[in-house]
Design a protein around this nucleic acid. Sequence first.
DNA 1: ACAAGGATCCTCT
DNA 2: GAGGATCCTTGTT
Length: 200
Amino acid sequence: MSALGAPLPASFYARDCVAVAQDLVGRYLVRDEVVLRIAETEAYCGPDDTAAHTRMGRTARNAPMWGPPGRAYVYLCYGLHVMLNVVAGSPLGSAVLIRAAEPVAGLDAIRARRGGKDGPVLLTGPGKVGAALALDVSMSHHPLTEAGGLWIAAGEPPERLRSGPRVGIDYAQAADRAAPWRFALPRSPWVSAPKGLELR
DNA sequence: ACAAGGATCCTCT
DNA sequence: GAGGATCCTTGTT
């Protein structure tokens, strides 16, 4: 357990969502025997970001995004995919989507939950991460700041990042579509849609 | 009460 | 590259 590092404290998340998205890359996402190294994130920056779920104001689903930082916002996408976000501190109503990860431990369980597949296809996409961790929407609001259950450990942040525009937000305004708020490990193949990313 | 659409993934071709 | 799966959330009537 100590090799994972300490849980990231609430103060880590109580910052601008873009900074949190950058700093979450390389950290460890832990649930029981499954440990994933976060390879790709996206920042969703509050109600003024027309790509964010909070653009319509507070609703029952997005309620965690308006609450304390460091908690999970988990929702169902397209009726079948479970997406994990981490609530950030500012602006109010912001969160970071976990889009991809590398396996660190528990590969057997990950494979079993992903149809017996192998390689990057296991974890390169937000719905795949949710499946690999066996998440469901009842975990929304869960604090990620204490070891046990679902949590995030300090892990090994990289020296550099790739960044680029976010994926799957055609409905947003042009400026928000163009914002380079997607971040990824520099050399990892465990990243979705690597074409849109550049080393900065 | 209804209709529309979605921060995606998989399977074909 | 195209299309279907699948159902909840949201805005509108």
